[in-house]
Simulated assay, not measured.
Amino acid sequence: MQNIKLIFLATGALLAGCVSNAVVSTNPNSPSATGNLDGYESFSITSIDLGYAANKAVQQFLEAPESIKPGGGRYVIVVDQVVNDTLNNFDIRRLTAQIKRKLRQSNRFRFSNALGADQTRAVLDERKLQDSKLFDQSTVAQDGTLAAPDLYLTGKIVVATTRSADGDRQQLNYAFMLEVVDKVRGYVLFDSYVEIDKTGSNKNFAW
């Protein structure tokens, strides 16, 4: 009987340790918020975080009255530099690709890959075929046909770390800051700001 009590005590201590070491996120879609026991949560930015940030950014963009082009039609946007200023190593296009897709679906925007971070080299290389005898010139893209963008999408992801007074726990505050800039006057036409906080034991520090 004494051995059984010791086993229960040890198991209880282990479970308590697991709970105290758990990472808790303010992302409402995270495993810690939804109670998904099979989900993985860490101090790092996860795919669930990127999806949440993209959805919130698009929502904030579309709520801005300036996102509707005066006179009708759709804005042409180029993705400029979006900087990942955190210690998380991930391709920023995992975020911007989701934003582009969702904004296109709103039918208010077109995205151009002729310039910027997502530039498709073949778009410009195509113009070099104009003097080639190997290609039917009626099928070759001509000069003066590329559409210049109206707006640029730019931004930064930053993180701040706060530790508890006893040094046992910490909180990481991620901020996704994105802006859409008018190319002519440089005005910020509309922007978004999305925060995700992650709190947990220093033992779970991911880098």
Rank of each mutant, 00 (worst) to 15 (best):
T161I: 10
F176R: 00
E63Y: 08
V76Q: 04
E63R: 11
F176M: 02
A22Y: 09
G186M: 11
A16F: 13
M1Q: 09
N113D: 15
G71M: 04
S20L: 15
L95G: 00
A54V: 04
V83G: 01
L6T: 06
L134E: 14
E179A: 12
L87W: 11
F90N: 02
G155T: 00
T154N: 03
D136S: 09
T34Y: 06
T34C: 04
S192F: 04
S20E: 08
V194E: 03
R185G: 12
L153W: 03
V24Q: 04
N173A: 13
D125F: 13
I196E: 01
S47Q: 12
Q137E: 08
V123I: 14
K100I: 14
K56S: 10
N55F: 05
G12I: 05
V158C: 05
C18W: 09
R74K: 15
T154Q: 07
D191N: 13
D80A: 14
L178A: 03
R93T: 12
F190T: 01
V19C: 03
K102E: 15
S30E: 05
D38N: 11
K100G: 05
R169H: 13
Q60R: 07
G200H: 00
F176E: 02
N27G: 07
F8A: 09
L14Y: 15
G17M: 14
